[in-house]
């Protein structure tokens, strides 16, 4: 029995079968590794975007870099504290304990970035805002979520489809917006 199985494995069909099985196993493993890398670490505080947006806080209040340069910036706890120190609930809420603790100990909040691109992509917020895009065009409606979520996979196809659309019929614009060197260097 064992011997027959071994002979079958050594036959051409057996080889192909082994390769297919091996490939599937490794692909699954690789996919698993890939997925596990995508899971976000927990945020330092369960920050409710919906609540803040609902209260009328502008995106650029906490992420002012977006209008100015490449990175929108993630706020320091000083920014949080600027408002929260005047809110009575800050002292009592369990949810806000990490903020109180950080403020007392002088520690940093190490935010976990949600919207990110690989480091061979050089994204710049400024021209996107200047071109009239709103934050929610890419980042989704923050009044609907607590912790920020990415509404779409930020891959190159997604970037390019919008770039092509935006170029319209302008050849020069099209060249600029689809040039490899615009984002990769």
């Amino acid at each position: 029995m064992v011997r027959r199985l071994f002979e079958w494995v050594m036959s051409p069909m057996g080889w192909i079968a082994v390769v297919i099985v091996a490939l599937s196993v490794f692909s699954l493993a690789a996919f698993g590794i890939y997925r596990s890398q995508q899971a976000l670490k927990p945020q330092p505080i369960q920050f409710p975007h919906n609540l803040h947006v609902g209260l009328g806080v502008q995106c650029l209040y906490c992420h002012p870099g977006a209008a100015r340069g490449p990175s929108s910036g993630l706020p320091t706890i000083n920014k949080c504290w600027g408002c929260h120190q005047q809110i009575a609930k800050t002292q009592t809420s369990d949810k806000l304990k990490p903020l109180r603790d950080a403020m007392a100990s002088g520690a940093n909040f190490v935010w976990v970035p949600v919207a990110k691109v690989p480091d061979f992509v050089h994204f710049n917020h400024r021209p996107h805002i200047a071109a009239g895009l709103n934050c929610e065009n890419c980042h989704g409606d923050m009044s609907q979520v607590e912790i920020a979520e990415n509404p779409q996979v930020m891959n190159m196809g997604w970037c390019l489809s919008c770039h092509k659309e935006r170029a319209g019929g302008d050849e020069e614009k099209f060249i600029k917006l689809t040039d490899c060197g615009t984002c990769h260097y």
């Binding site: 996919f31 870099g65 340069g69 320091t76």
Partner: peptide
């Protein structure tokens, strides 16, 4: 190797007390 994480990410640490004239990312 083809399916591995494409790149390493740098964790962004905000300034606790941002120095004057300093902006994130600039």
């Amino acid at each position: 190797t083809g399916c591995g994480p494409a790149s390493r990410y740098v964790e962004r640490e905000p300034y606790q007390r941002m120095p004057e004239y300093t902006y994130n990312g600039l």
